[in-house]
Every structure is written in structure tokens, then in C-alpha cells.
């Protein structure tokens, strides 16, 4: 029982840290693909939180949620990559700073 030996607080702190890193990544990085990866990191940090709580509460529902989130994240990947590819095809090497046609 490795989880039992380490306090749940450490797991929660780790997932909060990962979530924060992902959020900073979205705000700081300019490559659309890396921004997208950061969003995935945030979702996985939430998964870790769910699993930790499920373990703490001895409740299976929290672990089932993780499967739902994985499916949703996979669907997001498909659509997100499609959008990114279609934009990059029209404008190779674009970063988020180049996407500036829309402003007012």
C-alpha cells in the first residue's frame, strides 16, 4: 500500500502543482501545439485529484470519472489537432501571436 504510506495531501499538492504548471504553460507559451499540450496536462492533473479523493473516500465513482475525462480529452485532441492543422496549413509556422487578424 504505497498510497497509504504517503499522505493524500502530497498527491493533492502534486496535482495542484501540475495544474498550475499547465495553466502557466497556456498563458506563457506561444506555440498552439504546446498550449494544447498544457491543457492536457491540466486535465491529467485533475485526474490525479479524482483518483486521490476516490482512494481517500473509498468511493469507486471518482475512479470512473477518470475514464470519462480520458475519453473527453481524446475527443478534444482529435478536434483540436484538426483545427490547428487547418490553420497551420494556411499559414505555416504560425504562433499564437500571428493569430492577430481579429482585434478591435
Amino acid at each position: 500500500m504505497i498510497v497509504g504510506a504517503v499522505s493524500a495531501h502530497l498527491y493533492l499538492s502534486l496535482s495542484a502543482l501540475l495544474f498550475g504548471l499547465g495553466a502557466i504553460g497556456v498563458m506563457v507559451r506561444r506555440n498552439p501545439l504546446v498550449m494544447f499540450m498544457s491543457i492536457e496536462l491540466m486535465l491529467n492533473a485533475v485526474n490525479l485529484t479524482f483518483v486521490t479523493f476516490a482512494r481517500e473516500l473509498d468511493d469507486l465513482a471518482g475512479q470512473v470519472v477518470v475514464l470519462f475525462v480520458l475519453v473527453v480529452a481524446a475527443a478534444e485532441v482529435v478536434v483540436g489537432l484538426g483545427i490547428i492543422v487547418s490553420v497551420l496549413r494556411q499559414r505555416p509556422g504560425a504562433t499564437a501571436d500571428d493569430a492577430s487578424l481579429l482585434r478591435g
Binding site: 497556456v26 478536434v79 483540436g80 483545427i83 490547428i84 487547418s86 490553420v87 499564437a96
Partner: peptide, 17 residues
Amino acid sequence: RLRSGEAALKYFVLGGF
């Protein structure tokens, strides 16, 4: 339209966020 793609990209990144 480039603008339509750009709107989709922005909507996607901020929506996912």
C-alpha cells in the same frame, strides 16, 4: 477564410482552458 480558422483556434484554446 483565415479569420474563421483563427476564431476556431482561439475559441478552442480558451474553451479547453
